[in-house]
Design a protein around this nucleic acid. Structure first.
Lengths: 207, 207, 207, 207
DNA sequence: GATGAATGAGACTTCATTCAT
DNA sequence: CATGAATGAAGTCTCATTCAT
């Protein structure tokens, strides 16, 4: 029984992995359930046993990825002491994770838009999740006096928008510039935007 | 003959207008050529007489819209004297135009991503067009000493990303907050991000 | 599993049979995949599950029919001892098979031409297959001295062309004359054309 | 008025010429009225002024070509004295004309089959026309005792079928062999098929 | 639980024909 | 007479989903 469950879970995960690969390579609409079945070494019927439909797979994928990403972000934040740097840690983690996992980046920054109206709401919810994390720490920074009072919601949104554009550009342009280099240029801008000191490079040793 | 041309052009425009409406309401993939034909009061065949296909319509739409937007931006810039404020004028114009024309905004910020691989390149080119305009004036500002030297390409990209996220959020969230209010909060952030003085509200009387 | 395969094969065959009927009745171009689906009691999608497209169905049909015809020809040839009569057996078999299966005849002698450029090569290959069979035995006849040396390739082609025209005429003319009668008149001509003795009617009892 | 008529006739002919070129290059079904209009330097409306439809163009084309071909055949026949050689002259003329005008050959031997049921009847009528010419002279030959009595209808049909196959093969095979060479090999065969003497090469100086 | 055959709605596109200018 | 814009029927093909085995 335990074993059954285990097998089912493994199959479930394999389908999700396959879906991520397929969706990020061909886009949501141009991916067929057959494609996913093929990559996950299952049959079409098998996919439908584990998920009620194509849409549900994409939703599950978004949720799983968002949760994983959020966990990483929280872990990274826990390593920082200063509020502003905690906020930055969130940004940096997103950028690095996407940098390492292009497929994930495509999923969130591009393909989610093409999946249809239903996904936009969910996508926005996820955006807000991350923005809220950033905002929370900016608020702390303001409270602790480390930063002038600003509209932290907008500030968090600007930070998020800035990094989204940078990563999207990196995703869609075959150009050579590395994401890390771009982030190095980006860092001073976002700190200054909220009137904070630009800290020396922090726990950058990670990864 | 002149009249013929007139008629054809009018129909051409009508199809494009219909396409904008349809695409921005249902998304590129969920829009059918029949939909466009219906809204433009033409037959499907009529649409195909004027455009070689659905894709071509979307491309034409992007190009027309980008050109129009760019014209407005250039006009707005011409009204400003200071380089930094010129750069801001670009931003403000984009925001206001999109604020007035939700459909256009959806087209550029959402549907273009969902339309498929083929459009990404073109979309990026258009992004770069706007970013270049901003960058150009930031460069001037740096040269004129009105601003500390920064990586103006990244700065322009940050500005663009920030405003994209703000507008996208506004588009996809039924929330009450007006775009203008958000921009008011955004303004100081972007100026500070490049280490520039935050100017008093400029020729904001326009529109 | 064995049963599954059985079912799939049966459907495959049923589609091919339906296609033969439809194509030979309405012509390749005027036949729609819907027609074939209808006659084969399948859905359009079902047809596309078994064949990649309309063209492929026609190709498969040609190949299956050519193979079957060729088998019959070889069988008939095996019953004859004299080279020239072997060659004739090929001809006679083609004529009789086509006589019995009008649809097949239409397919090879008419519709294959009308199906478009892509099919011409394949059709010619099949023609050459039959011509080669005839030629082979004419060659043997020449070697054995039963026949004066002639250009056997042309001779085989003439035989094939003659019978093609006769059958085509029979196909397209509502006239009463039977194919067998026409063949009776044709036989002396083709034998004499290669300078061979006209044999008494051979194993004509068959069928 | 006379001039008007002249102009109209010229246009008529130009359309027919264009149609021949287009049909023989792309096949009847894959040719569009637009194609014909384009090649004939007319507009689509212009084509429809001169012909009631696409089908009518093809019919007119077949008729014109058949008539021209028949005229040439009659001219060639007139040059020969012996009945059998008259019959052969018909064959030779068809072969040579088709050899010079590939487009015509395609029209009659291939594309006419693809044009749909309606054309088959007409095509057969034209076949019969030529076969009748041949048959007529074979009959004369029999009457004059120059040839053993045979079923001249079948004989004529065999001759026609043989030459059709030879030309069709030449049309559809990129092979190097010239039509004239093939005819040289073919000639003895067809004469012998009707039990006639093979004459020395006759008025071959023509063309 | 898994497989793959089957369904059917719907998409894009083509084009012969008509007709206003 | 000529032009080219417009129509609308029809065709091929795709694919999410269902279901018998």
């Amino acid at each position: 029984m335990q074993f059954e469950q285990h097998r089912a879970e493994k199959r479930h995960r394999r389908i999700l992995d396959a879906a991520l690969k397929v969706f990020s390579q061909k886009g949501y609409r141009d991916s067929s359930v057959d494609d996913i079945a093929g990559v996950s070494k299952t049959s079409k019927g098998g996919v439908y046993f584990h998920f009620p439909g194509k849409q549900a797979i994409f939703f599950a994928l978004m949720d799983r990825a968002a949760q994983q990403l959020l966990e990483r972000v929280e872990d990274a934040i826990a390593l920082e002491a200063e509020p502003v740097q905690r906020a930055e840690a969130a940004l940096r983690t997103v950028l690095r994770t996407f940098g390492k996992h292009r497929a994930l980046a495509r999923l969130f920054l591009i393909e989610a838009y093409g999946a249809g109206r239903e996904f936009h709401t969910r996508l926005m919810e996820i955006h807000e999740l991350f923005i809220l994390v950033i905002q929370r720490h900016l608020d702390e920074a303001v409270e602790s006096g480390a930063m002038d009072p600003v509209d932290t919601e907008i500030a968090a949104r600007v930070w998020f928008g800035a990094i989204s554009e940078v990563i999207t550009h990196w995703l869609l342009t075959p150009g050579p510039q590395s994401l890390d280099e771009m982030y190095a240029s980006l860092r001073p801008l976002i700190f200054r935007s909220v009137g904070a000191e630009v800290p020396r490079s922090t726990s950058d040793a990670s990864r």
